[in-house]
Write a protein that binds this DNA or RNA. Sequence first.
DNA 1: TAGTGGTCTAGACCACGGA
DNA 2: CCGTGGTCTAGACCACTAA
Lengths: 253, 253
Amino acid sequence: MGTTQLESVPEPKYWHLKTVLSEALDSEFSVGEILPNERDLAARFGVARATLRQALEQLELEGRLQRRRGVGTTVAPPRMGVAVGTELHVWPGAPGDAWQPVDCVTEVPAAAVAAALETGADEPVHTVRRSRVTHGQRVAAELLHIPAASVPDLSGIDAPAGVARARAVLRELQRLELEGRDSAVELGSARADDAKELDRLPGAPVLVVTTRYLAAGRTAALSVATYRADTCRLTFGDSGNVEIHEDPHRHAS
Amino acid sequence: MGTTQLESVPEPKYWHLKTVLSEALDSEFSVGEILPNERDLAARFGVARATLRQALEQLELEGRLQRRRGVGTTVAPPRMGVAVGTELHVWPGAPGDAWQPVDCVTEVPAAAVAAALETGADEPVHTVRRSRVTHGQRVAAELLHIPAASVPDLSGIDAPAGVARARAVLRELQRLELEGRDSAVELGSARADDAKELDRLPGAPVLVVTTRYLAAGRTAALSVATYRADTCRLTFGDSGNVEIHEDPHRHAS
DNA sequence: TAGTGGTCTAGACCACGGA
DNA sequence: CCGTGGTCTAGACCACTAA
């Protein structure tokens, strides 16, 4: 036939759309600027709204866009670097750490937490809730699990819960000698409570950082911190922290 | 009215669906088992297929499911821990590292890479492509950028590209003294080339690990590694590496 | 109250894998 | 070839925000 078949691998529309939008963001928009609404954009590109939304979702996942219901879609600033792996051999709650205690409860934890802490099934655990603010933005929410056995001298505190108790638990933790630490990062989706704390909808993508603190040959504390994946880049520096100004991954190929 | 209004905050259908499916996966399915197809599942729960797919997407994002076109949806095994932050003060390509060189080209890089390397705009850079296999699975693809100035004694090599040249560049790199390193982790979506290497569709969620290697007071190499976010948990241990058996994040709350 | 993004539907067709 | 998940459409209604 006379028809040429160049499109041997037809690219999905939303993928092509994402590329076009991405280039437009680089050249025609500046940070914080509001994009046209989804219905107009879809009409302009001649696609259904659902298809446009698929492209926007990808761009939001990559931290290029920010969407807020009732407001609109704006161009996101570059992701902020958030230090996670520095301050070796320091307990949570040490002077100058980036976290702010919010609450504390003491109870027998869920089975998964007990297993990670290697505690007995009936052993009570203090769970401190903390939040992290960087550059004026709430970037992470944390649950810090501390077996009651790790902080035995908590007798003078009568507060059954709340910030006061959280501070007391953290203070007692400093008395132990920290022997080591290991962390893991994985992708997750925000639970309802974390989503509220992070000002996102439930299910929003988050980076979950799980850290075990070791003392006296056992796990003395377990931190599960959820960071906003759209706005954060987690940095693990073992040398001086230098900012990488532009993302080499974005434009490569 | 006599009708009670308990649903003050109506939960989205796909969110409830995700919870139900998640519990079913825990109790009624085992790893590797094939779920009913999407049309049957949607009918069984009385929702449109698109709504069901929204729930499945979330579960896949959390590493609970694996979906393959033409095959079906299966229950995913727990995420594998992949060491990323150990082996301090070791160059890429050192004996025993987990990466396998695939290719190497030498050319003037994209602007973003040049900026991160702090090289001049016209300075050539070796780009080594490597892939990482763990537990028999391709888990990551890497582009390793090395300024030509970091490996000046590359004269005896006549191969213009390919694995041989990659090995030669890595070998030369070992002659420098590594002074430090810093890494960053962020969420991204797989480019077409990485997706093919990782056996995923383009746009699949990945964890992008950017590492700068420092020597002689400058950036001697820059690694951009993309890990499959669905199957990997990146571990950064500064003490012995101990596996966390079950994810404390999954079941909490 | 008007306009935004978020959810949901009931279809259709396509690309891929295996029999 | 058939069955799977992946893409796409053209609507509808809801939840939220700001004026």
